[in-house]
Amino acid sequence: MDILINGKKVKTRKGEHVLEVARREGFEIPSLCHHAALPPDGACRLCLVEVEGPEGKNKVTTACTLEVAQGLSVRLDTPEVAANRKVVLEMLLARVSDSPTLLKLADKYGLLEMRLVPQGEKCVLCGLCARVCTELVGAKALTMEGRGTETYFQPPFGEPAKDCVGCGSCAFVCPVTCIEYKKTDRTIEIWGRTFERLACTECGEPLDLTPEHRDLIRRRTDLLTPAEMQLCGGCERRTTMKTMQRVVEGQQTLETARR
């Protein structure tokens, strides 16, 4: 199915959304709440595009939620898109004024003057942290709490995150890096919890793995034993190397080396 982006004919597959197609084709569309591994959510409203309708009745909508369809034609930089995107950006920047991500976008999309009162918040409420935690990692440690302007993404009731496994994915996907994730030699601190870092059973080097996360990962496959998971990459490779050496030296056959 072909669609038109800024007049350019582009190949798409059924079920795709305009944002992913456009980015694949090299077009730039800003967004904060989109993630390739998650279904579209349409929360940040930055990825606005204009859909050409019949009789000049065009409609501005978000590219992330816009499914491709036969005859679809979108434009990315119409005055209507630019004006609305600028106001959305202004709203976000009023909320979180010091985010380099947002300041860069403001620069790029011509937001020169701030008319709104700064709110001094840190989070843009894109929701990626909670969606990643719930829909991908499967820990379900974070939730959207409150309503209206008093909305927060946090562990239930704002208490230390009971179901968190300390994997740090939320902090990684956060577009404005507002999730505090602290790593010491022995611990990982996040969402009010302090997790023990497992150490390599061979060399003692601390791993980026907590016992809780290890157990969660093991639920996804039947291939792993806890002992195998608790070696650092270097020690694992040395074991691999030794096995290979034994094979080369003829002490072991390839079949047994393959466990």
Binding site: H35, A36, A37, G168, L209, L224, G233, C235, R237
Partner: peptide
């Protein structure tokens, strides 16, 4: 690895028994 989808949870690093996932 499709880095657009990856959320850097390091589960693959923990899973590989041969040490062939690097950070």
């Amino acid at each position: 690895i499709d880095y657009d989808r990856c959320i850097n949870c390091h589960a693959c690093y923990a899973a590989c028994p041969f040490g062939n996932i690097h950070i």
